[in-house]
Nucleic acid binder design. Sequence first.
DNA 1: TATTGTTATACTCTATAACTATA
DNA 2: TATAGTTATAGAGTATAACAATA
Lengths: 158, 158
Amino acid sequence: MTDHDAVVLSSADRHWDSAVGADLAFLMARANARSLAGVSAALKPFRLKVRSFAVLSLATEQDRLSQRDLAEFLRLDPSQIVSLVDGLEKAGWVRREPDPDDRRAKLIVATAAGRTVHAQARAASDAWERELFADLDPAQLEQLVAVLRTIAEVPDLP
Amino acid sequence: MTDHDAVVLSSADRHWDSAVGADLAFLMARANARSLAGVSAALKPFRLKVRSFAVLSLATEQDRLSQRDLAEFLRLDPSQIVSLVDGLEKAGWVRREPDPDDRRAKLIVATAAGRTVHAQARAASDAWERELFADLDPAQLEQLVAVLRTIAEVPDLP
DNA sequence: TATTGTTATACTCTATAACTATA
DNA sequence: TATAGTTATAGAGTATAACAATA
């Protein structure tokens, strides 16, 4: 491939720098590891982990949320949701309520205490994210969100 | 904050969409999970996992690479490198060679078979990455790499 | 005294199957 | 017959401490 060819490169035949430490999967894994480490540290004072924080967030932001909904949205096995909800329920931050429309299902709702903790934890994790992405200008941030969104395939909540 | 203020937003006080499923840490974790799942699938025919592929890649691309170097670059505990190298050595893809300059250290070098497998595995994982990022134009790809690189903090190899 | 590779161990995550009560 | 939640269990991944050989 010559320099001349470079001006007509399409994404399909773009030079792919495939050395470890340069390829996208590796960089993404690294960036994610750093992001998660920071979020974990930010959540620690609230005795929340990334997973339980996600459940508490959804319970706070969403109503009529069943454990099945949580499992699908977070792509976790329903059995893992059980222990996550157990922990949050024992802390008094969410309640299991019977679904009036389906006696098999339980709706997970945040308590007042849960909402308070969630707001504080969200502020802490947002602060870390702002720090992590401080060097990006708003346009870059927006583009990053857009790119990640196309790749992430986040499902809609019911 | 009023609408008027919005026009002078800097990255520090940009509106931060902090709902789960919209915040950057969540999107990054999701995007990374999808990326890694694809790489794992691409590597499966070669009986490589993401970790062992990284070690094999470094052994192929780098010479005079000690286990200590691998541990630092991959941010893994030295004890985890032991079992990764064990696996690759049993498969005949890398060798432990004594470091002539330091009799404590062992240099990890790829064998001919290891290089062959690595080339094929690299092609497979690159193909997946091209597929995953097919919707991005070259400029977006370049920007994504640049952004991830600033966040990933990948160390230099000695 | 510090470092390299190694072993051992415990702890967290993750994946899977089977069970119950409802639909 | 299928679905929601639960229990139990095994496997993978991760973190930590201690040790022998060498610097």
